[in-house]
Each structure stands twice: as C-alpha cells, then as structure tokens.
Nucleic acid binder design. Structure first.
Lengths: 203, 203
DNA sequence: AATGAATGAATGAACGTTCATTTTTGCTGC
DNA sequence: GCAGCAAAAATGAACGTTCATTCATTCATT
C-alpha cells in the first residue's frame, strides 16, 4: 500500500521532470497540455489525474525547486563550517553543477511570469524569503549574531547573492572563453560579499 | 510628403510604445494580436498594415531598445569624461530612471524567449555585442588601450556589468527598504568593476 | 473618381479542459 | 492454475474558446 503511494510520488516526480524540459523548450505559455502530456509519455486525459491544471503544474515545479533548496541549506547548516560550505555550494551552482540545463530556461520563464502574474509572484516571494532566511541563518551562525539581527543587517546582501545566482543561470550562453571569465567575476563578487559580512560583524 | 513619412514613423513609435505595455502585462506569448491592436487603439486588420506579424513586433521592440542604447553611448563617448559619465548613466539606470516601468517586465520576457527561440537569441546577441563594444570603447578611451585590446581584456567585465543592469531591472519589487539597500550593493559592485579596469590598465 | 486608411467578420488551427469509454491491474473463490 | 469482477489507470474524441492571420468592405481625403 505504502509502496504504491511511494511509486505514485516517484511517477509524479518523473512527470514533473519531463514537464520541466517541455516548459523550458516552449515557455510557460507556449507549452500546451498536449505537449506536456506527450513529454510525460501519456494521454492528455490521464495527465489530468496527476495535476488538476496547468497552473498547478507550474506551482508544483517551483515547489520542487524550493524543496531542493531547503535540502541544500540543511546540508550547509549542519556541516562543520557552514560559511565555507556555502561558498562551495555557490561555486558549484555558478559552474552549472547542481542544476540541470533546463533550470536556467525555466527560471527565466518564472522570473518573467512573476512580474505579471500575482499568483506566481506570491510563490517566488515565498521562495525568496526562504532563501534569504536560510542565508541569514548561515550568516548568523558565522557571526554570532541573532537570526533577526543577521536578517536586518545582511538581508540585502542575501538578496543580492540570490540575484547573482539567478542572473548567472539565466544568462544566454556566449561563445568563447568570455562566459567563464565572467563567471569568475561573479564568483569573486560573491566571495567579497561574504567577506564583507564577516567584517561588518567584527567592526 | 516627408512630413507624412515622419508622421508615419511617429505613429509606428507610438504603436510600439503601447505594444510594449501590452506585452509587459500579458507576456510575449500571452498578449494576443487583438490585445496589441486594442492597446494601439485600432482594429486588428489595420494593425497588420504596420507590422506584418507578431514576431516582427518583437523584433522591432528590441531594435528600438538597441537604438536607445546606441544614443546613450553616443552621448557618453562624446562627453568630457566618458568614464564618469558612464558611471552616472548606470547609476540613473539602476535607480529606475531612463527606463519605463514596462522595460523590466519586457526584458524578463525577452531574456526567457532568447533562451528558447534562436531568432530572438540572434537579436539579443547582436545587442549584447553592441553594448560590449560600446562599453569597451569607453574603457579604451579611459585607459589609452586600443579598442581590440580593451575588448580582449575587459570584455568579460563589460558582460558582467550588462548582466547586473538587466538583473536589477528584472528583479521583483520587494517591500521595505531592502530593495534600495540591494541596489546600493549593485552600484558598489559596478563602481568596483570600473575601478578594477582602470587599475588593470595601469598595472 | 481614385487612393490610402481603417474596419471587423471569417477562417482554420490550437488551446485547456472534460468525460464517456476502454484497458490494465489486483484480488476473490475455486 | 484460472474465470470473474470491481477498482484504478489510461485513452482520445469532443467542447467551447481563443489564437494569428486574411480579406471583402467601408470611410476619408484629395
């Protein structure tokens, strides 16, 4: 019984992964339910047994990303040196590891949709708040400041870092080594921001 | 006769401006030709006398932005202190001046579309190349290096700065003073990047 | 009368969603 | 093993809209 429920979840996750690709290829509005169903390898009718509407799919996709993010931060916060672990995680992200090739396209779509659909803006706002909270938890642990104080003083830094990660992921690929050079600049900006947080706490 | 042609151009520009708002509100795929025509205050049929297709509209909108950018750089490059003028122009942009409220939404749409439609990617690539070239022209003038040398050494810096401007414009507005604080961080990163360029040229 | 500007109904395709229907599955008594 | 059967899974045609685009027609100006 429980095994069946687990299998259901796996199936749903599989469907979401395929839908992500379809959305990345055709856009949130551009991908039709027939496209999504075909991507998942099933008929339209059956598709609606898993997700009641197209909007629900998008919500579920963002939720999955939010859960992944929470998992990443759980690992960071329970590690020996959270600040260092954070640096490494960000570095991996910027180098394109830890997120599929569709994630950049998908987040470009979500960024655009969030600017015109309040329902999606609400979801991304929750996600942003979650990331900021987690980042500030790391800062809090590294500086000895309380969570509230860390959020007050470094909230803007957190948002800035999130913006950089998203912007890097949604960058159009450009030929030549220029893209790698630019990622180095992003990485350096990240490191400087983190350094500044540590220094602000000392001073 | 030429007056009529000029009036035509003005009309076309007016239509484009209205279409920009419609696209910003409903998305590139979400806005229908009926929506765009109604925004422009005319019938669908007449609308097609100005733009042969929806795709042509999008192309024209990006082209307008590219021309505006070229105008901005023309002013910068012919000013007394281009580097300082560049700093000021960027600062104004980050503070939301010099670009309408629809521009952020519109560019979020274009960023997403460029990642999945090669035709749009081609246009944005040309625009990116143009901005990079212009930025490096400023750097070239400020450092005494040749244009080619400036592009080779600071091309990545230029792309990085473009990324920051676009990312700032497409950021979701967030309540409280945190947004302004973050813009300050962006501004500081910009200034540091420009400082570094000057220093790299000296060293 | 003649020309360009403007209209909006018409077209066929594609959209999200529904649902009557069929197929597959898991389980019963034998 | 297997026939029988109810529940679950899966199908795809159908529905009402809306889409981008076209075009026969009307309006305005000269």
């Amino acid at each position: 019984m429980t095994a069946m429920i687990l299998a259901q979840d796996l199936r749903t996750a599989e469907i979401l992964a395929r839908a992500r690709t379809a959305f990345a290829e055709k856009g949130l509005d551009g991908a039709s339910m027939q496209d999504l169903a075909r991507s998942a390898g099933m008929s339209v009718g059956n598709f609606y047994r898993y997700f009641p509407s197209k909007a629900a799919m998008v919500e579920a996709l963002i939720t999955v990303d939010m859960q992944e993010m929470e998992r990443d931060f759980a690992q960071i916060l329970t590690s020996d040196d959270p600040m260092q672990r954070l640096r490494e995680t960000i570095h991996a992200r910027l180098m394109g590891q830890g997120c599929g090739p569709d994630d950049g396209r998908m987040w470009a779509e979500i960024t655009a949709a969030a600017l015109r659909k309040p329902e999606i803006a609400a979801i991304t706002a929750r996600m942003d708040a979650g990331i900021t909270q987690n980042l500030c938890a790391v800062f809090s642990q590294a500086t000895g400041l309380s969570q509230a104080e860390a959020e007050a003083r470094f909230g803007a830094h957190a948002r800035f870092m999130v913006m950089l990660v998203v912007a890097s992921a949604t960058e159009a690929p450009c030929p030549g080594p220029r893209h790698d050079e630019m990622m180095t600049l992003v990485q350096r900006t990240m490191d400087r921001t983190l350094d500044e947080i540590l220094q602000m706490a000392k001073g």
